[in-house]
Design a protein around this nucleic acid. Structure first.
Lengths: 117, 117, 117, 117
DNA sequence: GTGGTCTAGACCACG
DNA sequence: GTGGTCTAGACCACG
C-alpha cells in the first residue's frame, strides 16, 4: 500500500508524507482512521522508525493527521478540497518553471494528455 | 539577466543551468554566441566560480554548449525542439506526481489556464 | 464539568489534576466532598482508568485530596491560599521564560489586561 | 552564550530554538548574521549535531533564520515586534490557564512584580 | 504499545 | 566546511 522507492532522489520521509496525502485524497484513509504505528510501518517498509516518525511529525504539523499521546496517529478532519489545493499549489511551481523556460500553456496541456502513469 | 535566488531550495548550479536553456529557448542566446566566462558570471552573480563551472560542465555534457579550450564557452548548434523536449520531460515528473496524488488530467489542465507568471 | 482535551499536548492525567484544583479554587468542590470514583470518571471522560488513578494519586500525594480505602476519594481540608500559591508557582515559570526571552515586566502586565477568557 | 540546561524537562532542541529567538530579541544576533554552524554549536554545547540541526530546521521553518546551501545559517529579516508577539502569544496560554484555575488578573499582575530572574 | 527525544555516526549534495 | 538525510538503537512519558 505504501510503495516506497529507496532509489528515488526524493527523501524517504517525503515519500511517506506524500503517500499518506495520496491515500487520503483517494479516500483510502478516512477521517479519524488510525494510521499504522511508526514501528509497524517502518518494519513493513524496511526503513528506520525515525524516518517514518519524521513524516508523521510533518503531517501533524500541517494538521493532516493528529496524534493522541500513547494511542497513535489518526487522520485529521480531512478537507479533501484543501488537500487538492495543496497538491495543485505544488504543481503551480512546475507550471511556472516550464513557462519561464519559454514553453506555452498549450504545449503543457498537450503534454498532460500524453502522459501515462 | 541571470536572476539567481540564493535562498531557493534549487541548487544554484541547477538554476544557472536552467537559465542558460531558458535564454536559448527564448532566442536571447543564439547559436555560436559566447557565454559569459565562468569568472565573470560568478563575479556578477556573487557565487562560487566552481558553481558556474559545474553548470557549464553539465550543459556541455548535454551538448547544449561547447567549449574551446582557452577561448570560452559557446552555444551549440541549437535544436530548440530538443531543448523543449528536455523541459517537457522535467514537466512530466510533475504531472506524474500530481496524478499519483489522486488528481485528474482535467484538473491539471484547468490549473494551467489559471496560472499567471 | 471536566472538559478534557485528548488532542492537547498536556498529558491527560495532568488535565484531570488541574481540573480538580480548579473546581476546588472555584468552590465547586468543597471540603470533604466525595470525588467521582476512578471508574465513573474514566467512563464519563472516555479515558483509561489508570489515567484518572494517576491524577488522583498525584492529588493525594500533594494533600489536596485524601482517600478512604474502599470508600473513595474526598477533598482534603482545603487551604485555598495554599492552592493559589501552587498555581502561582506554575505561573512563575511562564513569567521567567518570557522575561528570559527579553520581554519586560511592563509588557507582560499589559498583556494580561488584554486577555479575554 | 547559549546556556543549555540538560536537566530541564524542556527538550534540548527547544531550548536552542528559544535561545536563538532570545538572542535576536535582545539584539545580540542581528539580521543576516551567521549563526554558529551545527557542528560547532553541538561541540560547544556538548550535544548531538542532530539536536542542533532540529532546532535550526524549526527556526528556518518559521522564517526566523534562513540557510544558504553549503554556506551556513543566517538570521532572517528580523521583525522584532513580530517575535515579541510570538513570545507573548505563548504567554497568553499561561495567563488563560491561571485565570481558568480561578485566579484574578490583579493577582497575576502582582505576581509578576515579585519575580526575580 | 504509542509517539517524542536524543545520541553516535554515516553518507550525501553543494559550494 | 555546510546543512540534509538516514540508520541503529536507547530511554522516556503516557496510557
Amino acid at each position: 500500500m505504501f510503495n516506497i522507492n529507496l532509489q528515488s532522489r526524493m527523501p524517504i520521509y517525503e515519500q511517506v508524507y506524500k503517500k499518506v496525502i495520496e491515500l487520503i485524497i483517494k479516500g483510502i484513509l478516512v477521517e479519524n482512521e488510525q494510521l499504522p504505528s511508526v514501528r509497524n510501518l517502518s518494519k513493513e517498509l524496511n526503513i528506520n522508525p525515525n524516518t517514518v516518525a519524521k513524516a508523521y511529525q510533518e503531517l501533524e504539523r500541517n494538521k493532516i493527521i493528529y496524534s493522541l499521546s500513547g494511542r497513535g496517529s489518526f487522520v485529521a478532519k480531512t478537507n479533501r478540497n484543501q488537500m487538492k489545493e495543496h497538491i495543485l499549489e505544488e504543481f503551480d511551481v512546475c507550471i511556472k518553471e516550464a513557462l519561464q523556460s519559454g514553453l506555452t500553456k498549450e504545449e503543457l496541456k498537450n503534454r498532460i494528455d500524453g502522459v501515462k502513469l
